[in-house]
Structures are given as structure tokens and as C-alpha cells.
Design a protein around this nucleic acid. Sequence first.
DNA 1: TATAATTTTTAGTCTAATCTAAAATTTTTT
DNA 2: AAAAAATTTTAGATTAGACTAAAAATTATA
Lengths: 218, 218
Amino acid sequence: MLSFAEENYLKAIYHLAEQSGQSVSTNAIADELNTKAASVTDMIKRLSSKGVLSYQKYKGVYVSEAGKIAALQVIRKHRLWETFLVAKLKFNWDEVHEVAEQLEHIKSPLLIKRLDELLGHPKFDPHGDPIPDENGEYKEKPKTPLFELQIEQSGIVVTVQDDSPAFLQYLDKIGIYIGAKIKVIDKVEFDGSMEIQIDGRKTNFISKQVSENIWLTE
Amino acid sequence: MLSFAEENYLKAIYHLAEQSGQSVSTNAIADELNTKAASVTDMIKRLSSKGVLSYQKYKGVYVSEAGKIAALQVIRKHRLWETFLVAKLKFNWDEVHEVAEQLEHIKSPLLIKRLDELLGHPKFDPHGDPIPDENGEYKEKPKTPLFELQIEQSGIVVTVQDDSPAFLQYLDKIGIYIGAKIKVIDKVEFDGSMEIQIDGRKTNFISKQVSENIWLTE
DNA sequence: TATAATTTTTAGTCTAATCTAAAATTTTTT
DNA sequence: AAAAAATTTTAGATTAGACTAAAAATTATA
Ligand SMILES: [Mn+2]
Ligand SMILES: [Mn+2]
Ligand SMILES: [Mn+2]
Ligand SMILES: [Mn+2]
């Protein structure tokens, strides 16, 4: 049985490993969790001894098969709770992440089973992220970052890569939501910013940082 | 901000204080929480320094006004979650207590506000216990333990004093629920057991321990 | 390839929460 | 009112999780 802290580390390491594909460095973990490298070294030793990570001194860590299963269950709970908060408790999509960080650690298989049923077995959370099933399986929608689109190209928003309230509130303000249609009007090579049209109506200028975090499908 | 452990202690001490009306002893707390007296001494020092208990060495503790407010908010959350689990997730009344012990510690005022709204501001939980409002206020229904009724007297079940699965499953088995009508058919002076009729149909023999934990109104 | 810079680990401390064993205090019994 | 019994507190350890500072290992640079 993993503690809250252990689950948080494992989840963060799993996400970092997915992104990089390689072993995850101590510093990258410390950075992600706003903690110190020394604390990370302590924790990854503990997690390896529990069999969810494989660790070689100075070489970083990999997530084991058992670790992936455990991480995906935490992620499943996180995303189910976020979906519940929006669908049943009228939370805005920028209000759910912090609470889900707490709720994801509640231990009760029945609770998650029933929550999933109540929500009708949702496949995606309010930010467009896929919800793994009881077996940790999920399917991603094919998607590209808005940043990579060329002038005149367009797509439908399927997911946002940043869950921070600041980012989501900004998207609310300029009218971007999951399902919105975005067309690239102009791109500035110098700083990577672009002009976009949302749902064929509004036009906005957005920074590279923003366009990298909005992912689209055809 | 109280930790999980601190909230659990405070809640237990609040309940013990309500029952006795007097100061709560170290041993009574240790007993209630299945912990050791030495651990309790440590914790009550910490809770007094946080202002939620008043403590005199060797004299036991009282819950302060601030402590009562904090305790009632935890109790409110516990009972709202139990109500949610039964009303929305189809849990049986014997399955909710353990999960609510975890959920009661989630910190999010908005979550509790919305949960309360979703449930229609319920006044009682699945065991018949009153749910305090945002200000910690609640009203009890007038009630007497079944044990005190005389032969031929009857009443409606309003609450059960024991939330353990074993007890609640037994009540399910013999057909007792919140709202059931119970009539005393016979009482055995020797061991305090009694024969009762439930909803004018079934007849059962129940022990003193059981009749003390079922509370009725007219 | 030697030196410098960076990353990672180790060593030692700290706090919250728990425990056992022993000492101190209060309560009960003689 | 002593002595005995019970309760409560203290002292000292332990574990999880975090930190700082210093040492060790790795990587980059000259
Ligand atoms: Mn999230
Ligand atoms: Mn979390
Ligand atoms: Mn309960
Ligand atoms: Mn609890």
C-alpha cells in the first residue's frame, strides 16, 4: 500500500517517463514536485524497494510494470474525480485539479467503481485527458499541438496540456474550450506567437507558450 | 490547519465530551482511537497549543469553542459524504463509514458547499445522525433508546448509535431500518433482552446490547 | 585529458506521529 | 492515613518525509 506522498511521486515520475521515454533524473523529479534532490533520492530508494521503480545510483529511475499499473490507477482516480466535479458539482475546469490531487488518494475500489458508473464510464476528463479503465487501458485521440499548425490550417481542441487555473482561466477569457474550432490566421517566426480565429468568430494573438499547450485534431 | 490525525483525535474527543459532559480522560481517548495513552498525551498537548482543547496535566481535556467549531465541520463533512454515498452511489448504510473516515479530511469549502446543494441540504445522515450546517448548527429529533420502552409501547426508529458494519448488517437481516416501526412484545428482566415486532409483521428476540443502540421517537 | 561545472548522493537534523518502559501522580482500598 | 492499584506523564526510540551542507560521481569544457 502506497502512502499519499509515495503516490504523488510515482504519478509525477510516470508522467515524466512518458514524456521523455528514457530514465527520469533526480533533478527532473525534484523540479516537478517542488522539492529538493536529496528528498527525491530518499523517496526513489523507498519506491524501488517497494518494486514500483527500478533505480541505479546516478542513472535515474524507470517505472516498473507494477509501478505503471499503480500510477495508472491514481491517474484514473484523479481524472474520474475531476469529471465528477465538473459534471455533477458544477465546478469550472480550472477549479478541479487541486481538489482532485486530494481525492485521488482515497482508498476504496467500490467508490471508484460506483463513481465511474454514475458518470457513465467517461473516456476523457474536463481537460481532454484520457481516463484509464480498471485495467489501466485507455485510448488517446490523435492530436497535434496548435503550435505546429501552419497558416490557414485548422482543427478542433481535444486537450490542454496545462491544468493550472491561470492558464485555464485565460482560455476561458479568450473563448477556447474542449471542442472549439481554431484556425491559424498568421504566425510570427520571431517569437513563435500566432494569430488565431476561434469558432469562425473571434480573432486573438497568442504566445508560443500558449499554442504549445493546446492540442488539436482534424 | 489541522492534520488528518489531529482531526481524528479532535472528533473523537468531541464525541466523548458530548456523551460525558465532563472532562475527557487520556485513557478514554486512547481506548476510543485504539492507541496508547502516551500517544494521546503527546497529541492533546499539540491540540491544546493549537487552541482547540484546554488541558491540565492529570485532569483530562475539554474542547474549546474553536475546537467545537472545527469538530462540527469534520462531523458535517463525514455525514454529508455518507449521505452522498448512499443517495448517489448506491452504497448500503453499512458500507459508508470507513470511506467517510477518509473523505471527511478533504479540504475544499467549495466541494462541501456543492455536495450539500447536490443532496438538497440534508438534515440527517443514513444512520439518522443530524448533519450540522455551515455554522455547526443542527437539531436533534427527540429520541429514546429502545431498551427503555415498556411492554406494549412502540416507536419509530430515528437513529442507530453504532455505525459498525456488523451491527448494521444484523439490523438489515432482521428488517430494522431508519423509519421502521417497532413494538415491544416482551422484556426479560434477567438479561435485558426483549421480543419486538417490526412494522407489525416480523417478531424477533434482540439482546440488550442491540436495544441500547436503536433509538426511537413517538 | 585534465579541469571545471553540474548532478546526485550521503550525512546529519528536524518534525509529526507513534510506540515501550519507567517515573510521577491520583484514586482506591485497607 | 498508609499502602496498593490505577491512571497519566515523561523519557527515549522509531519511522516517514522533509531539509541543508558537504562529498562523490558524472558530464562538459578548455
Ligand atoms: Mn488534473
Ligand atoms: Mn495528489
Ligand atoms: Mn459514520
Ligand atoms: Mn477520519
